[in-house]
Nucleic acid binder design. Structure first.
Length: 353
DNA sequence: CACGCGTGGAG
DNA sequence: TCTCCAAGCGT
């Protein structure tokens, strides 16, 4: 087994040193900061997470602060970033680190892998960047770069392919494994793009099998297509006599679990029926607009209704002013759209779409 | 292994 | 408008 690093490693590392983006979490090897950034980076582009990262580490500067935080506050910091289970797993892991690891983040791949929310990619990223462990961090960028370098038509959607690539790269890590991993990802993010890659600017183009054979545009191979089902939904803004709106905490399982939102049900259930059964509201509903919200695997086609001047005595649901909903509650984007529409349409006739 | 799980940018 | 895709993980 050849366990020396690849011949192109040096060129890649030199390119990385010169071209890497100045990201805030690159200013430190603090495993806590790197951990947070890597969790946020899962399935998320770096530019998107930057403001979230800065706010998060300011509010929760160390693992003890994170472990002691209220989950609602944590979710508020995650609001709009998506994949909210990441925040919950981060919380669970923080508590485990405090109670079982004396507040120290595990310093190796194997132990990191045991923590909730940390899989093969994230464990490898933290272990290599913070603790110099020679283990490959294989994300979507690396799968693409490696497929092209080796002219491999293996399906990168397969778990087996990911394992093989991680194994192959891990056998050949240089003495700067963290830099190597980051360099591979940075190359994928800046040069070896999914479409129209900048091959002429690539520091390892002379070693690229796909470029040599003209297959760059065919790689990587990903067979599985996402199939998205459409659900017809009905949502309702329930307004009381003081102009406050009814919000509900979503169930603790499933889509957007643990966050807050306005009453919403599938159309065949009927929002009027739901409100009457749950809150005994009998005031008339008025359709005020239609919109669509697209998740990874579901599309909601939403009919938005409103009920005005609802009488309630406090025990029938949580009523909060729109301003305080925005400032104090973690509201997913689908519901924020409704609130924006509500705020603007009270002054002028804005189409809801 | 297949599927559930958000959102925003780019072509 | 539609599709893909992004520093993936849990079940």
């Amino acid at each position: 087994m050849n366990t020396t690093s690849f011949s192109w490693t040096k060129s890649l590392l030199q390119w990385f040193e010169k071209n890497k983006r100045p990201l805030p979490f690159r200013l430190t090897k603090d495993p806590y900061a790197v951990w947070i950034s890597e969790i946020m980076a899962q399935q998320t582009q770096i530019d998107t997470l930057l403001p979230y990262y800065n706010r998060f580490v300011e509010s929760f500067p160390h693992v003890q602060a994170l472990a002691a935080a209220e989950e609602d506050l944590l979710l508020k910091h995650w609001e709009g970033l998506g994949y909210y289970n990441r925040a919950k797993n981060l919380h669970r892991a923080a508590k485990i680190i405090v109670t079982e690891w004396h507040g120290f983040i595990p310093d190796n791949y194997k132990d990191l892998l045991k923590l909730p929310g940390i899989g093969p990619y994230t464990a490898a990223a933290i272990a290599s960047i913070c603790f110099n462990e020679k283990i490959a961090a294989v994300d979507g960028n690396v799968l693409r770069v490696f497929s092209r370098l080796t002219n491999s038509f293996d399906d990168i959607g397969e778990q087996a392919t990911k394992r093989q690539i991680q194994h192959a790269l891990s056998q050949c890590m240089p003495d700067e494994p963290g830099d190597f991993n980051e360099a591979m990802m940075e190359l994928g993010a800046l040069i070896c793009l999914p479409t129209n890659p900048y091959c002429l600017l690539c520091p390892i183009r002379e070693h690229c099998s796909a470029l040599e054979t003209g297959h760059v545009h065919l790689l990587p191979v990903k067979k599985k297509k996402i199939k998205r089902k459409t659900l017809a939904m009905e949502a309702c803004l329930v307004e009381d006599t003081k102009g406050q709106l009814l919000i509900e905490k979503r169930p603790d399982k499933g889509l957007l679990s643990g966050l807050w939102g306005f009453p919403i049900v599938e159309k065949n259930q009927g929002i009027g029926n739901y409100l009457q059964k749950t809150y005994k509201y009998t005031e008339p509903l008025c359709l005020i607009g239609k919109t669509k919200h697209v998740f990874t695997h579901i599309t909601w086609e939403i009919d938005l209704y409103i009920i005005k001047q609802v009488q309630h005595d406090g025990d029938k649901g949580v009523f909060i002013s729109p301003k305080n909903i925005l400032s104090d509650f973690a509201l997913p984007t689908a519901f924020k759209k409704m609130l924006r529409f509500y705020n603007s349409s009270s002054r002028k006739n804005t189409p809801y779409k």
